[in-house]
């Protein structure tokens, strides 16, 4: 089998994809009720993005 697809994602797209997939996994593993899972997934995704963007801005002054 050969690699038919090669992805070229931007930094933001990669972070969004990673955060979404991991949030879904955490939500399903840690909560039982569907509504609780959705709330957990949304909250986890929000925190992933907030902290990711926050760290990005925190590193900005040292990037040049």
């Amino acid at each position: 089998m050969s690699a038919a697809v090669v992805f070229g994602l931007s930094h933001l797209q990669a972070m969004l994809l990673f955060a979404l997939v991991i949030s879904i996994a955490f939500g399903f593993l840690s909560r039982r009720q569907p509504i609780e899972r959705i709330k957990y997934i949304v909250w986890s995704l929000f925190l992933f993005l907030l902290i990711g963007v926050g760290i990005g801005w925190a590193m900005y002054p040292f990037s040049r």
């Binding site: 697809v5 992805f7 994809l17 997939v21 991991i22």
Partner: peptide
Amino acid sequence: TVGLLVFFGAGMR
């Protein structure tokens, strides 16, 4: 989720 991460991870080389 594990499958997606592997698929994209390998696709991103």
